[in-house]
Simulated assay, not measured.
Amino acid sequence: MTLDRQKLLAILAPMVAEADFAVEVYESLPSTNQKAWNAIAQGAKPGTVIIAERQTAGRGQWGRQWASPAGGLYLSVVLEPNLPVNCGYQLTLATAWGIATALGDRGVPVKLKWHNDLILLGRKLGGILTETKVRHEKIIHAVVGVGINWANPVPATGIGLQSFLSQQPLAAIDCLETLAAVTLQGTISGYKFCSPGGIDTLLPSYHKLFINMGQRLTVEGQNGVVVGISDRGELRVRLDSQSYNFSPNSEICLPPGAVSLGYDG
Rank of each mutant, 00 (worst) to 15 (best):
S260M: 07
L209A: 11
Y263F: 15
A100L: 14
G107S: 12
G257P: 12
V226T: 12
N82F: 12
G72S: 10
D20G: 04
N249D: 12
G197Q: 04
S28Y: 03
M213S: 15
H136Y: 13
V143L: 09
D231I: 02
N152R: 09
T187Y: 00
D200A: 12
T92M: 03
V182Q: 03
L8N: 04
A102V: 11
Y26A: 08
A44Y: 01
Q185P: 00
V225N: 05
T183D: 06
L75N: 04
G224D: 07
I99W: 02
Q55W: 07
K45I: 09
Q168N: 02
G160Q: 07
D231T: 10
T132F: 06
E18D: 15
G147D: 06
V219W: 13
G43K: 12
R106G: 02
C194N: 14
P169F: 07
V259I: 15
T101F: 01
N86A: 03
T101Q: 10
Q167P: 00
C253W: 09
T2N: 12
D105H: 12
N249C: 06
T157P: 00
W150Y: 15
D20I: 08
L170W: 08
I40N: 03
P109H: 11
G265W: 12
V49Q: 05
L12N: 04
G262C: 04
G107Y: 10
